[in-house]
Structures are given as structure tokens and as C-alpha cells.
Write a protein that binds this DNA or RNA. Structure first.
Length: 354
DNA sequence: GATACGTGGCG
DNA sequence: TCGCCAAGTAT
């Protein structure tokens, strides 16, 4: 038995609290073992993403592609389009790649250990632990930002992140009970999101208030320490909405790698370090009007101000384009799979919702 | 090991 | 308005 699992130990205290206070979430099942496919899908969606943001994406994906085989058989563009708006699009590319490995090479079954899961695309240390513990009952830790914060406070670990990661992971693993490791993982995350919050933690309601060293030392709220972030540089650029006589809009699929890799965008330039490529002729052969409202958007490592232009007059049906450009009917623009920034740009250019 | 990689909510 | 933060991974 791990140290935390003894009667009155931290794991027992936490699981007791979890049974009474844990959140009901779409990907959690009350009875029996959850479907590894659903666990994997939810964990990938939840990487660096809030529960609220994942919202309907999870249920929509599960309804549309109920099995890993179904997802593997789906065209990649459809998976990327369904992911549009969630961000970190490498996750969607890796999700599809992972589904194909599981479906084609592993007989449709996910590996049952963290060590094996870790080898699959898009599955790192956290996700491997989460799937192994939740879906297969392996007694391994799933250390996300919640767990890091909770553990750092619990043991008053003053080493700043990310240097503290190894120690935090070691402590977390020691606490994992042999029984209910999956519930323990989820309980730790619920504790971090409901009680042991980044600011103003509710220590008096915490099941670990007695053994918590950070609380005893009066330093819980100031942990974990972190190295300061770099300021985001500001970038600017232009995006053009080119309308055809029949109402179709000119779009472009971005290269597979890098920023918004594989996603669809309005033709744009000047902001992403990419060479400007235009279909046939430059857009400056056309007459554009600049839209009143610029688009502002914040990426992980820079903030963006995008000037928005639209054609003063629609172009002819004869305006032929080659890949990666294509014409998208206005009525299907909403389903084109525009990432957040490009959806904003389209809305600004059209002056109406998609 | 540092950097790239989205988006939305909150104080 | 703005910085912080979020169920991290890949390179």
C-alpha cells in the first residue's frame, strides 16, 4: 500500500472528499470502467484547455465518431474542421494520427499502460498517466497544472516551476493509491480547480487542510513559484476577404506544420513569417475597401492586430484558383473550419455572423 | 531545456 | 486594458 492510501492518509481523505464533491462531467462514468477511447479523446481536448471550452466539442466528436476506428477512417480535413476553435491544432493532427495507429496497428485497442501509451502521437507524460489510471486502473500519477499546484502547496515546495517538476512528480506518485488510481487523479484535478485554486484557495474547505505544509507555513497561496513569463511581442498584418459573384469566399489551407498548421484561413500576409503567395494574380489587382474594425487576437507567444479588407466588387466566376486556395460557398463558410482568429476576420469583413 | 503552439475567462 | 491561467506535447 502506498503511503497516502493508509486509513486517514492523504489519498483516503481526498477520495472521501471526491465522492461527495467531485464534479459530474460528460467524460466521467459513475459505474464500471470508462471507454478508453472516450477517456483519450477528453484528455487530449483538455490539454491546456478549460472544461468550459471543451464543452460541446467532446460530445460532438463522440457522436460523430463513436469509435477509434470511425475517427481513423474520417478524412483529416473533417477532423481539423471539427476541432476549429479549440486551439493548439497540433492536437487535432496528432489525434487523427493516433487514431490511425490504434485502429490499424493495435487492433483498435489502446495500450493499457502509461509506458506504452506514451509512445503514441499527442500523448505525453500527463495524458499517458491519465488514460492509464482512469481507463485501465494502473496506479500511476497524472500530473497536470492542477496537481502541480496542489502538490507544491501540500509539501511547501518552494523550488520554482518548471525546475520543481521532478520533485512534484515523485511526491504525486508516492501518494497514488493502488485502489482507485483513476479517481485519485481526477480528485486531484477537482481539488485544484474547486478548492486549491491559483488565487484565494479555500483552505478551510480542503480535505488536506490538516496535513498541508503550505497552509501550516502560511505560504499556500504564494505557491507554486514560477519563473516570470516573457512579454508577448506585438505583430500586425492584413487579411483579405475576396468575394465571388455567386457569394463564394476565397480561402486557403495552411501548410501542415507550424502556426495553425493544416487549418483554413482567409488569404493573409505579413504577420506569420510566411512567404506571401497569391492565386494567379496579386490581390492588389482588385479593388479593396478596408473594414472599419481591425481584428485583435492573442496567441500564445504574440498578440496580433489584423487589418481586414474586402473586395469592393465581387470577382468573376472565371477567377480560377489552384491549391492551396479554394472557393468556399458563403452558406458553408460557417463549417469551413476557420480557426478563431480567422473566424473573427471573416465576421469583421462580412459585417455579420457566419 | 527552451521555444512554439490557441483560445477564452477572470480579476 | 492586461496579465495570468488552463486536464501539455513536440522538437
Amino acid at each position: 500500500m502506498s503511503p497516502g492510501a493508509e486509513p486517514g492518509g492523504p489519498a483516503r481523505l481526498l477520495l472521501h472528499w471526491y465522492d461527495a464533491n467531485g464534479r459530474q462531467l460528460p467524460w466521467r462514468v459513475r459505474s464500471g470502467r470508462p471507454d478508453p477511447y472516450a477517456v483519450w479523446l477528453s484528455e487530449v481536448m483538455l490539454q491546456q484547455t478549460t472544461v468550459a471550452a471543451v464543452g460541446r466539442y467532446f460530445t460532438d466528436f463522440l457522436r460523430r465518431w463513436p469509435t477509434v476506428e470511425a475517427l481513423a477512417a474520417a478524412p483529416r480535413e473533417e477532423v481539423l474542421a471539427a476541432w476549429a476553435g479549440l486551439g493548439y491544432y497540433a492536437r487535432a493532427r496528432n489525434l487523427h494520427a493516433c487514431a490511425q495507429v490504434v485502429a490499424k496497428e493495435l487492433g483498435g485497442r489502446f495500450p493499457s499502460t502509461a509506458q506504452e501509451l506514451r509512445k503514441l502521437p499527442g500523448i505525453g507524460p500527463y495524458t499517458a498517466g491519465a488514460i492509464a489510471a482512469i481507463a485501465f486502473g494502473e496506479p500511476v500519477a497524472a500530473v497536470d497544472a492542477n496537481a502541480e499546484r496542489v502538490i507544491a502547496r501540500f509539501r511547501a515546495i518552494e523550488t520554482p516551476l518548471p525546475d520543481a517538476k521532478p520533485e512534484i512528480r515523485r511526491v504525486a506518485q508516492e501518494l497514488v493509491p493502488l485502489a482507485r488510481p483513476g479517481d485519485f487523479a481526477q480528485a486531484l484535478m477537482d481539488l485544484g480547480s474547486m478548492i486549491c485554486t491559483p488565487r484565494r484557495p479555500d483552505c478551510m474547505a480542503c480535505p488536506w487542510r490538516e496535513p498541508c505544509v503550505g497552509l501550516a507555513k502560511g505560504m499556500a497561496e504564494r505557491l507554486p513559484r514560477k519563473v516570470p513569463r516573457r512579454a508577448k511581442p506585438a505583430r500586425e498584418g492584413d487579411a483579405w476577404l475576396i468575394l465571388r459573384e455567386d457569394g463564394a469566399v476565397l480561402l486557403r489551407r495552411r501548410p501542415d506544420k507550424g502556426l495553425l498548421g493544416g487549418m483554413v484561413e482567409l488569404p493573409s500576409a505579413g504577420w506569420d513569417g510566411m512567404e506571401t503567395v497569391w492565386p494567379g494574380r496579386t490581390p492588389f489587382d482588385l479593388a479593396f475597401v478596408r473594414c472599419k474594425e481591425d481584428v485583435r487576437h492573442v496567441f500564445t507567444h504574440f498578440s496580433l492586430m489584423l487589418r481586414i479588407w474586402r473586395t469592393e466588387y465581387p470577382v468573376s466566376q472565371n477567377f480560377a484558383v489552384d491549391a492551396p486556395f479554394f472557393w468556399q460557398p458563403r452558406s458553408h463558410l460557417r463549417n469551413a473550419g476557420l480557426p478563431g482568429v480567422m473566424r473573427k476576420a471573416a465576421v469583421a469583413a462580412l459585417g455579420e455572423p457566419l
